[in-house]
Design a protein around this nucleic acid. Structure first.
Lengths: 96, 96
DNA sequence: TAAAGTAGTTTACAATATAAACTATAATTT
DNA sequence: AAATTATAGTTTATATTGTAAACTACTTTA
């Protein structure tokens, strides 16, 4: 790509982008909350959260709220930076 | 997706987005020019141009420059509208 | 006339996204 | 108390997509 910088493929996915954009503003959110906000299915969300986690863009902690399992996602510094960089690259595409 | 509107999958692809963003500014461009600007391989570009064409986002005309075949792509009204709509949706993601 | 270049297209494969099916536990209902 | 429904996810199977490699067809050059 000469004129067009590569878009981070991890962020260039509708659901992962939605998750990250949510986490950028709230920093921390629970699985169920993210699921509702994004409208994703649990399976799809689970997979995509895994990928973001493996990339170090978010940190995932599992605990219990009463007797129910709760998965909490926190955006990492690396995640914030990646998101900002992605947004900048994207802007360069759409305002050519 | 409750909070997040769907991103047109035809535009949410790095190469097709690059092609469309190029065509939005220049209106009309030749295959080889697009190939150079985007850094895509000919095969990949050919496939993606086909998809944009089938969607009615661009019009493709084939002619000759001297004895060499030339494929020219023109963005359509529908394409411009789709691009603008995509950009708006995207903006709503990244400035939440 | 053989080799290399140009302009693409087709096809085969790898990667991705997604839903469906599943696990595990808890709370209700009958 | 057994069966049913609900909650919170995970795993897996499939369909879709993206991409490069291989190919076609023609032209130019050595």
């Amino acid at each position: 790509m000469s004129d067009f910088k590569n878009l981070d493929p991890l962020l260039h996915s509708q659901l992962r982008l939605a998750v990250m954009s949510l986490l950028v503003s709230v920093q921390s959110a629970e699985f169920v909350f993210i699921k509702e906000k994004t409208g994703a299915t649990a399976g799809n969300l689970s997979v995509q959260i895994d990928k973001l986690n493996n990339a170090g863009y978010i940190e995932v902690t599992k605990s219990f709220k009463g007797k129910k399992p709760v998965t909490t996602c926190n955006i990492s510094k690396k995640g914030i930076e990646a998101f900002e960089s992605y947004v900048n690259t994207l802007q360069s595409y759409i305002k050519k």
